[in-house]
Design a protein around this nucleic acid. Sequence first.
DNA 1: CGCATTTGACCCGCGC
DNA 2: GCGCGGGTCAAATGCG
Length: 290
Amino acid sequence: MSEDFPQFYYHHQPYDHDDDQRRNTAGSQYSSPAHNNLQMFDPNSYLSFSDYNSFSGGFGVSPPSPEAFTAVVKEEQTPLAVAGETPATPNSSISSASTEGNKKEVKEVMEDEEDQSSKKDGKAKKKGGKKEKQARFAFMTKSEVDHLEDGYRWRKYGQKAVKNSPYPRSYYRCTTQKCPVKKRVERSFQDPSIVITTYEGQHNHHLPATLRGNMAAGMFAPPPEASSSFTQELLVHMPNLYGYGGDGGTSNIVYHQQNLSSTTPHHQQSKEIRVKIRCVTLVSRRVAND
DNA sequence: CGCATTTGACCCGCGC
DNA sequence: GCGCGGGTCAAATGCG
């Protein structure tokens, strides 16, 4: 699976020479036409991660040279997710800008457990073999820290080396009792500045009160000055965005880009947040229209 | 002392 | 059937 993620955001940073070098070495088998265009993205490689049809059907927007963008894939909700609670605590997460606010971009993917990727999930079955399908939600964040703060408390229970990647994958479980949520965190081998976080399951509890209130209930960790409104906006849009409460019958992908500075000045962060909110709004409308 | 992390062993599914 | 790789367990260790 780890092979799929880098493919997804391939060339997100077209001017990163270091990245090119890495592709020529460790990621040789993933080499693709060197155009700074996400159209070069190969959905086939992504298939195991998310529904291929979602991409082929919805990848109509293709920015020529993304400096920063957000991509969202919305797919059918799993029966489990639909039957579950409303996303008071959606299985989404935050890509924290860490202490320095160095987050540059966030990409999200909603993963449907009913697609082919569930095959791999089967491996997660433990001795009991009772593991059920869990909704999964993955996103990529440009961050220097591996474990992004998302408001929940996590306990690391494993770490494995990732094939074709020098970076290990870490496994975390929510420390809250009876909370089934897990997450995997790994770093892209193509761009080590990218952290790939995959959430599995939905929290059956609220955010721990000890952690900066509930500012992290959304998907991203906004800069402090914008945290409140930003999170609220996201929470408002999340249901449509990920099909919670929706018809769940449409596959969708929305791609969005903005020419955000990679070194966003502090005073422009709120602007960036607004851009993202707009993006989410756009997604919501689109889903609604479908 | 309690909790989190580390890490090697183990389990399981899949491909050959 | 076997090997590989992903995921999890659990004892040891670290840390506040």
